[in-house]
């Protein structure tokens, strides 16, 4: 009796779980949508081979990542399994509210994101689930779209489609907002405004630098009149003894070079000046050596 009861419970559990799984799967696949297509690509997105191929943008409108590996793309409703999106590649997982591009160029040997049919062969595109029977999404698009003009949903959640500027891997809403550059060209078709404003700003920035350094230069010039102040580093070396002038000078040079080589001096210093200190103490010859920048 207990065995019969537990069998019943297991059966109900399996039923509930499979129902839940089906609901989740159904929800998942409705969140995968064809979002935008571009059939006449001359300057839009380029593929891995540097070619301007037609492309299909697929969006995941869900709030968790979905994998389209194993799904089918087709341009013929009677042949739903025309292009199988391979499984096992992490790139087929579409992140939350994100997009992937598939190139509809008919060269499937170029990689998994290249269909075996050309998007321009027909004006139809459909996405089937991994069973090859469940239609997830389909679209009939206008033939002969202008160069780089795509056919796209007004936004990823909408069922309305419009033509507009291609926005691969971006929100379609951007289609309907002119870019700043386009607005600028409309208002300033010959670029005269840009030339005047931008040249003025460049001049303004550099005039500011000019004024600043004109003023600061005058201040520094006054400060630099005394050569001692101009020196980067100064060392005073004292020597005692008679008839040792030459040796002392040589020693001063040697010590200064030693300090210089041991990074006690500023690297750029390249003038060595040695002067005898007139105020040196009795019997002491005091030499001041310093390097000055050129």
């Amino acid at each position: 009796m207990i065995q019969k009861k537990s069998k019943k419970i297991i059966f109900i559990l399996v039923l509930v779980m499979s129902l839940y799984a089906n609901i989740v799967h159904a929800k998942e696949i409705t969140n995968i949508r064809i979002n935008e297509i571009l059939t006449n690509n001359t300057s839009s997105y380029i593929d891995e081979y540097g070619n301007h191929s037609p492309w299909i943008e697929i969006v995941n409108t869900d709030y968790h990542a979905l994998n389209i590996g194993g799904y089918y793309l087709t341009n013929n409703i009677n042949n739903p399994k025309k292009y199988w999106i391979p499984t096992g590649d992490p790139r087929t997982v579409i992140a939350i509210r994100n997009y992937i591009l598939i190139y509809g160029n008919g060269n499937s040997d170029e990689g998994i994101f290249h269909t075996n049919f050309n998007l321009n062969e027909t004006n139809f595109l459909a996405l089937f689930s991994s069973d090859g029977k469940t239609l997830i999404d389909s679209i009939t698009f206008p033939k002969g779209l202008n160069k780089n003009i795509s056919y796209a949903r007004i936004n990823a959640d909408s069922d309305s489609w419009k033509t507009g500027k291609a926005t691969p891997l971006f929100k379609n809403e951007l289609n309907y907002k002119k870019s700043t550059g386009e607005k600028f060209k409309e208002l300033d078709p010959y670029g005269a405004g840009m030339t005047v404003i931008a040249t003025t700003v460049v001049f303004l920035a550099l005039i500011l630098l000019y004024v600043f350094f004109k003023i600061s230069g005058n201040i520094f010039k006054k400060g630099n009149e005394n050569p001692d102040k101009n020196a980067d580093i100064k060392n005073t070396i004292s020597f005692n003894g008679k008839n040792s002038d030459k040796n002392e000078i040589n020693a001063a040079i040697a010590i200064s070079i030693h300090l210089f080589e041991n990074e006690a001096h500023v690297k750029e210093s390249n003038i060595l000046t040695i002067s005898q200190n007139k105020n040196s103490a009795w019997k002491t010859k005091n030499y001041t050596t310093f390097f000055r920048k050129k």
């Binding site: 060209k185 078709p189 010959y190 670029g191 005269a192 840009m194 030339t195 931008a198 040249t199 460049v202 001049f203 920035a205 550099l206 005039i207 630098l209 000019y210 350094f213 004109k214 230069g217």
Partner: peptide, 24 residues
């Protein structure tokens, strides 16, 4: 000689003249 800075600004006119040519 800070006034030399201004020559660097003047030469940038080439950028904006080219912008106009490309637009046209």
């Amino acid at each position: 000689n800070p006034k030399l800075i201004l020559i660097g600004a003047a030469a940038q006119f080439g950028i904006f003249a080219t912008y106009c040519i490309a637009l046209s």
